[in-house]
């Protein structure tokens, strides 16, 4: 990890190099090397872009970027009409939002089960974890959609939500358990010695100390949940990826639309992680 110091030269700071002056390695050489590395990256991306462009030209692909506007939205008689891509990302947000809440709930319950003294609790939690982690997500989705959904009368959207929640919940469980177990043993002992009940011990002593350890990996989980939500397109839930597929089968503009869909996921996930970074900085400052 490079350390960024406020005293570092501006360019070095922008490039994220450490700015430490080694005896045989003066700062100018450092900056020159950093510039060369940036140039390398730009060159590589340039070559890639050119390869794609040249390849598409060779197969006589007709780029039609001018047509993509209405895929987002149209304005008819001053009225805003969302297009398939906007509708799709709204469904994706809904899907990811509901299943992230559920997955944290499932994760918390499973973590409690795994750490409990009850044999039933431990064995149920462990069985759940082993099944979810050792079968493919796609197969789980088919199980939810073709087996559980008809049995319990669930529609495709909720089948997708529940499948994602069950899948990510298994990872949330381990994150939560890890955070709780990382709290020092002395804290448990002090809470016990004070005579706190088990609930009070966790509520007032353990969980408040575990939360700062749990939150960062948990947000990583939510980001991967947004990405994994694309898989429910195979059961035709009308989220972003499904809308992309439909657009392509209508317009044959595969290249443009996949670039746009990927870009929209990218914007969603990076803005989420930027928000989380800001939140973390604020939390650290509050302490």
């Amino acid at each position: 990890m490079t350390q960024i110091h406020p005293e570092m030269p501006l360019l070095a700071r922008l490039l994220g190099v450490d700015g430490v002056r080694h005896p045989k390695d003066p700062a100018s050489a450092h900056i020159a090397r950093s510039l060369w590395q940036v140039a390398q990256a730009i060159l590589l991306f340039g070559i890639l872009a050119w390869l794609i462009y040249a390849g598409a030209a060779a197969m006589e692909y007709r780029w039609q970027w001018y047509r993509v506007g209405p895929f987002f939205y149209r304005i008819i008689d001053g009225e805003f009409i969302p297009g398939p891509l906007i509708n799709g990302i709204l469904v994706t947000l809904q899907l990811a939002g509901i299943s992230s809440v559920l997955s944290i709930l499932i994760g918390a319950l499973t973590a409690i089960g795994r750490m409990s003294n009850s044999i039933a609790g431990r064995s149920i939690a462990t069985t759940y974890l082993e099944i979810i982690r050792n079968t493919p997500l796609l197969v789980q989705l088919f199980m939810f959609y073709f087996v559980l959904a008809p049995i319990f009368g669930i529609d495709r959207f909720w089948a997708g939500v529940l499948c994602l929640a069950a899948f990510e919940g298994s990872f949330a469980a381990e994150i939560i358990r890890g955070g709780i177990q990382a709290v020092e043993r002395g804290q448990y002992e002090a809470a016990d010695a004070t005579g706190l009940s088990k609930f009070d011990k966790y509520r007032y002593v353990i969980v408040p100390q575990a939360l700062p350890l749990i939150l960062p990996p948990l947000t990583g989980l939510l980001i991967s949940l947004i990405k994994h939500s694309a898989i429910v397109s195979v059961i035709a839930v009308s989220e972003l990826t499904t809308e992309g597929l439909n657009l392509i089968s209508d317009t044959y503009m595969a290249f443009e639309i996949w670039f746009i869909v990927a870009g929209m996921y990218l914007v969603l996930t990076t803005s989420l992680s930027i928000m989380v970074n800001i939140l973390e900085i604020k939390m650290n400052r509050a302490r």
Binding site: G186, A190, A191, A193, L196
Partner: peptide, 27 residues
């Protein structure tokens, strides 16, 4: 039974006052 540990084991997320009042309030 009150207990005092080698490594203090105060609750780091609570003020000194809260450390001392937690037991009386909850128990």
């Amino acid at each position: 039974v009150g207990m005092v540990f080698q490594s203090f084991n105060l609750f780091p997320h609570m003020s000194i006052l809260q450390n001392v009042t937690l037991g009386p309030i909850r128990n």
